[in-house]
Amino acid sequence: METIAHKAKLSKSSPVVRKYRALIHHQQDMPVQPDISVKHLNKVYADGFRALKDINLDIEPGEIFALLGPNGAGKTTLISIICGIVNLTDGEVKAAGFDIIRDYRKARESIGLVPQELNTDSFETVWDAVSFSRGLFGKPPAPDHIEKVLKDLSLWDKRNNRIMSLSGGMKRRVMIAKALSHEPRILFLDEPTAGVDVELRRDMWEMVRKLRENGVTIILTTHYIEEAEEMADRIGVIRHGEIILVEDKSRLMSKLGKKELRLHLQSPLEKMPGQLALEPIELSEDGYELIYTFDSQQEQAGVARLLRTLGDLGIEYRDIQTRESSLEEIFVGLVNE
């Protein structure tokens, strides 16, 4: 099992990614340029803390990439370097094909960032704050675009309100509106739904999907694994400043995921029959349930063998339930390895 994947391979399988390959590169034989390309990136802070260790990562146009990792793993440092907020120590980073140092203007023009913290200018109106962001990123005033962004984010009614008068969720929307004001090709969402209610979280997921449909590449960090499971095409896991895995979400779940089969017995067992001792199986405390855990890829052989053995032993069951492990369980397993 390749859990350590320093060199992330590009996913060619996603239909959305294929679509944008075609859109961006009219000739199919042209090489695809990743929207984000990180090579041998290292970051050592002034106090000697090594935040990133030889990071290599490519993110394709039009994909939703979820970067997962525990607190302090280096997610925000990585994003901050790509966006120009933190200096890299060594390595090479390109955004939209442009080096973030040599061609910083073109690289940054293509990026929108929604940071983790709700950093807003409290005394500004929503309209002024979003217009400011557009100008800062070198775009001429476009009231129609600002209006569309505000309407998409349900902020239109609040356009003349000062940001300080808005709720936390509304401020989060303002942060997103600012990031989208200059029509970026790449959008970084650093913990976008931290502290927002369920309704707003669903709205944001919907918005992210729409952006992707419009060709925006989205890189998302989140503590809500459910969010990554819901939206991401690919998952990257970072731990102690190292990328330990990059994989298609569906492939990751089938590769690393576990399945659980629960058999509800007709009558309780006092102890585990000897014939089942070698199987990864547990007996519940009340003796009414057998819990069998197996790799997704081995399900056919293992389950069939177990059911045959139970039949041979004359153990009858009245119900069968199966459950697949969530991305969260896979993630916890990875970072605790």
């Binding site: 966006c83 120009g84 907020i85 910083y104 203007r105 073109k106 690289a107 940054r108 023009e109 990026i111 960032l113 940071p115 913290e117 950093n119 807003t120 200018d121 409290s122 962001s133 800062l136 990123f137 070198g138 600012k178």
Partner: peptide, 14 residues
Amino acid sequence: FSGTIYEVLSAPVS
């Protein structure tokens, strides 16, 4: 102080 400097630092401005 407010943290909004992130926007200036990440913008294409010299």
